[in-house]
């Protein structure tokens, strides 16, 4: 079955528009869509594979403020360790709060990662690894989830 349905072609057009941006000229959009449609129609059973690729491009994050929460027993070098990782990734610290309750240490960092050349996942992994070395539990999350839960 090599014939694409109208619905599919519409989706391809939407996807192309999204990727090209709304300033794209109608001619260039048409060119891209036609090329994609003919490629899909000639490739037959690979249609599913092609779609995977097209859709995979959507899996990129566009939000760039993250919140890092770390807690564990107090010791020297916690803040230095975490901020060193952030500096390595060219992340900008916007806000920082820490609290010491008896021996228990909690730190929260609000960080802008838009200027970083690394992606969210590698920053997150490096921070968690650093945390393990310092006996800290480190949790890294995008800021939006907190806004959704705590702001009306």
């Amino acid at each position: 079955m090599n014939q694409l349905k109208e619905e599919d072609i519409r989706k391809i057009a939407e996807e192309a528009l999204r990727q090209l941006g709304h300033s794209a000229s109608p001619e260039s959009l048409e060119k891209v869509v036609k090329a994609t449609v003919s490629k899909l129609e000639s490739s037959g059973n690979d249609v599913v594979e092609e779609w995977k690729e097209v859709k995979a491009t959507r899996l990129k994050s566009k939000h760039d403020r993250i919140i890092i929460t770390a807690f564990g027993k107090n010791r020297t070098g916690i803040l230095a360790g975490l901020t060193a990782v952030l500096a390595q990734h060219q992340c900008d610290i916007i806000d920082l709060t820490q609290k010491l309750m008896q021996e228990f240490f909690t730190i929260m960092l609000l960080v802008d990662i838009s200027e970083s050349s690394s992606d969210f996942e590698s920053i997150k992994n490096d921070l968690i690894q650093k945390g393990e070395a310092l006996d800290l539990k480190v949790i890294v999350q995008h800021e939006e989830i907190f806004n959704a839960m705590h702001r009306i």
Partner: peptide
């Protein structure tokens, strides 16, 4: 074919959201 096409990224998208928001 329809399920494979439409839901191809469902698990991956959910996993990405898990990583991003820690839930």
């Amino acid at each position: 074919e329809k399920i494979m096409r439409v839901a191809s990224e469902h698990v991956k998208a959910a996993q990405k959201v898990e990583t991003d928001y820690g839930i």
